[in-house]
Design a protein around this nucleic acid. Sequence first.
RNA 1: GCCGGGGUGGCGGAACUGGCAGACGCAGCGGACUUAAAAUCCGCCGGAGCAAUCCUUGUGGGUUCGAGUCCCACCCCCGGCACCA
Length: 818
Amino acid sequence: MVDKYNPQEIEAKWRQKWAEDKLYQVTEDDTRPKWYALTMFPYTSGDLHIGHWYAEAPADARARFKRMQGYNVLHPMGFDAFGLPAENAAIRRGIHPLTWTMQNIENMRRQLKSIGAIYDWSREVITCLPDYYQWTQWFFLKLYEHDLAYRAKAPVNWCPRCQTVLANEQVVNGLCERCETAVSRRDLEQWFFRITKYAEELRQHDSLDWPERIKLMQRNWVGKSVGAEISFALDHPGVAEKEIRVFTTRPDTLFGVTFMVLAPEHPLVAKLTSADRKDDVEDYIIQARQQTEIERLSTEKEKDGVFTGAYVINRLNGERVPVWIADYVLLSYGTGAVMAVPAHDERDFAFAKKYHLPIRVVIAPPGWQGEELAEAYIESGTMVNSAQFNGLNSQPGIAAVSDFLKEKGYGGATTTYRIRDWLISRQRYWGAPIPMIYCEQCGIVPVPEEDLPVLLPEDAEFKPTGESPLKYVAQFVNTTCPRCSAPAKRETDTMDTFMCSSWYFLRYASPHYGRAAFDPDKIKYWLPVDLYTGGAEHAVMHLLYARFFVKALRDMGLVDFDEPFTRLFNQGIIIAEHQKMSKSRGNVVTPDEYVTRLGADTVRTYLMFIGPWEQGGEWNDSGISGISRWLNRLWHLMLEEYNCHEQVSAAAREEAQQELTRITHQTIKKVTSDLEKMRFNTMLAALMEFTNYLAKAGEAGQISDSAWKESLASLLLLLAPTTPHLAEELWQRTGHEYSIHNQSWPRWDEALAKEEEITLVVQVNGKLRDRITVPVSITEDEARQLAANSPHVQPYLEGKTMVKEIYVPGKLVNIVVR
RNA sequence: GCCGGGGUGGCGGAACUGGCAGACGCAGCGGACUUAAAAUCCGCCGGAGCAAUCCUUGUGGGUUCGAGUCCCACCCCCGGCACCA
């Protein structure tokens, strides 16, 4: 009698054994190809939910498969540990963020270990510990040294709830990405990274095997407009500036400019506003400032603005152009000023109608006779009312006007990107301190590398006040200038958490290296990441920042590759009760409960079976019991004694064995290609079918003991990546040598996998009329004969004329009659 | 509004390059075992029809000997972007 499948017992046992034997510890090895399989590390929010498992378990199966295929696989794990959620949770609970975070890590590490993955825990990284953030600070210094970090005063996104500034990427539809509070604007002096320097390169994904969707999102985020910058002459008493520059994609419409619009925050507004317009302008600016970003950016809203009383000169025709301000012009795009061509821009048209400003056609719509336009004509066309450019089409016109401007020194062709520099300062406690010092004598002075880390003081009052908590920690703030030794003050803002995750994949290659952020030799061996898996929500944040980091490092000569993640794969989302899981809905599935009851292998397998990985799927309690049943049947199939019946004839035995061999090899082939494509659901369907087949074959008992054993061994090997504990236990119990996870992936023989018989489909006029089992070797003539003679087919041929016959070898015969 | 992805039984989902629609699993139904239930095992399981057969992949049209798959138009769901000059 076979004992019961007891997952709790065998899973704990093997996990311990693997850990003791350091089975999954990896080192560099030039005899095998390397494979870096990375899963986005989790945020230390407290508990591992089923979504984490969904990211991690299939990824582990894929990494294990690569490992059995002979790759030297690095599949590390760590924790993203700085940031607002930890700080807010700690405040709520009245404990220190470090305590809270480290407790969570302990719990999450235990949960992660229960997955039974091949994580090499000796490489774990935790971003909030000094031996990690020391190097985050080091990156800041490197970026500063290479003029990629700078401090500037700018209108920035402010979240009133989180009490800190946010990067553009962290504002979603005008709401804070974390707490969904409406974001407002503040003018603050902050640290930025010059990610815009890489705008063009970040748009390119040529060498990357990434989902189209993500590449598109990044391209949209970076944005790109090709056009011209044009200088309008300014001659205003008491104003030093002698021009206002605008950006336009349509320099061919330059003769149609009838007014100019500045963003309300444009620095020239105050200087240009005439005395009689002052009140109106100031009122408008106040009103624009009070709006939230959502209100301001609403496309529904009617365009409004006010006249400043000032004028600029269109240098091409010498016309005086009135200068207005309006909140539909954004300071952050282009130059913060636009030339308005109402005839050929919808927004300018609406604005001109509202305020009765002139509308002058300079691009003739097809069949235009000089009449007024009912709406803006935004297409290209022939230039009119444009002096020497009349008659040119828009495309050559754009080039001609740009060239002319350049020649005269009034501007010229240029390209503008939508992406803004990355704002990395945060006025909160739980982050890596920015390693900068302010000295009255020397100005801004970087902390010398040898003085890193700048430790985050543990005893700060970290309640959010809108000011950096570190400001009030005297022993932190007060220091001496590294250059002149005079008393100086430290920067008290901390860094955006996305800094930490922009380079963690580099740290895994040499997690304990003390002389730099990474060991160059180890980086050469392991990087770039071959397969990066995780959620799609990081498309324009983490994934863009990490690419920027790598490109910056490359230009510093610190790495020799262009892109961190060669291949990217996004798994879908697990839902429950037809909805996204959330605490408030009370439909959160907690993996621990299922692991305890059914075992980690069952949970892993179920998550992989639910549907295609990239599509996610619905968690369903009765669905997982199906997996549990299957693994139980498998257990008994493997362990129950097989009896080969003596009285079976040699011919029958031969046939049964050939069939078994064929199905075994077909299964190996199917499972291998599905794993390659990460089609785990169909891989498991194939394994279930194989199990069902073996159960029947076992009953029939026509196969020799050795052939039987061989097929069971193949099944176990195919199962090993999915159910590592169960496979190990059964491997041992069926008399094999430890460990199944060090075995080679089974190979299939195409000749043995080949079917001997096929089902020939017979159609008449495309409708199915018969199926005939025939040998693969059947000739076309034989097939046609068989089809035409089929008793199921005959009635449909009677009294009809055969028009033609289609034969698809190995598939079907279609007889077309009339 | 623009750009992506998707719509197949009661449910999750299969279907190579245009060639047997519904693999595999869940739920359901019937049976065996059991005093009984659970577990397990066997069988059935898209719809209509006694049947032959007909209908069926969001809707309508088209191409083709043949369409879930290709083309055109439309509807619905999900995700992203949205005054970017």
